[in-house]
Amino acid sequence: MEILITVIKIVAVMGIMLGIVAYVVLLERRLSAAIQNRIGPNRVGWQGLLQPIADVMKLVFKEDIVPTKANRFIHDLAPIISISVAMTTFAVIPFGDRIDLFGYDIKLQIANVNIGILYILALTSLGVYGLTLSGWSSNSKYPLLGGIRSSAQMISYELSMGLSIIGVIMIAGSLQLDKIVEVQAAWRWNIVLQPIGFITFVVAAFAETNRLPFDLPEAEPELVAGYHTEYSGMKFAMFYLAEYANTFVSSALITTLFLGGWQVPFVHSLGLSDFWISIIQVLGFLTKTIILVAFFIVIRWTIPRFRYDQLMNLGWKFMLPIAILNLLVTGLVILLI
């Protein structure tokens, strides 16, 4: 029974997540259009709501082109690594408390791993392989440059990302994500306790997901399309989906670590039954995440791209010392209290 529940949870979460990610793409297109005084896709279905389906249908029927001297096996493998890493990261993120469904007490988290955050850090660093291998295996100069950039960028920002999380871990006293969320009950959100950690983590998350101020691996004006220049059809769609899945997962992660996860303030004073409280908490988690995704999108259309040396300067000279400093101050405060 335990296994069956887990399988159902996996299927449900995967399905919902793929749906959300598809609509994040639509959100990006509509929002960017609105920012540029355009309308954006509004023809397929009501207000363009079926656009993601049409896009996928188009990409399925596209020809899959592999460059002549490309390494066929790795060229096929790279998008699979990208998408599977982006999808599996969500496994440890708690998207709600417990829910009582058909007499079963279900925990709204796929896997409650006791090394939760380490699992996420390990998987997100695996994501680099997707980009780097795709760049290398394409046997083409622009993808190669994109791949090299992505590996350098990811490694630089992983450090400050990990260090900015440690502050949160020290407050919670656990690596488990559900513990971290429980500690943040009733407005004790980590964004209040760890403002500098929050900022460094958000900046590092932008770099990890290759979103615009740091989208050097695919910088269109310089590298054609970066690491996925030589990809087409469904393989390209996988990279595209992985990018938005990464955005969604990192938003979910920021929510979990800094914005109180599924905690909704004052929900217990409404006098609802436990079932509805759980539902509201899940919706609260989703709302926070989607707002963060919208923030990612607006930032993309606000800030221009960094130069490569500026990116490295920011990562090593500023982000890393700030993260370490934050760590020391947090440790000192915890020691004194």
Binding site: N37, V298, I299
Partner: peptide, 20 residues
């Protein structure tokens, strides 16, 4: 950065250029 975002977000409510 927040000022920049204010500018981009204020564009959202401006009339659209696109002709349907």
């Amino acid at each position: 950065i927040i000022n920049g975002m204010k500018i981009t977000l204020s564009q959202v409510f401006r009339p659209k250029f696109t002709r349907q």
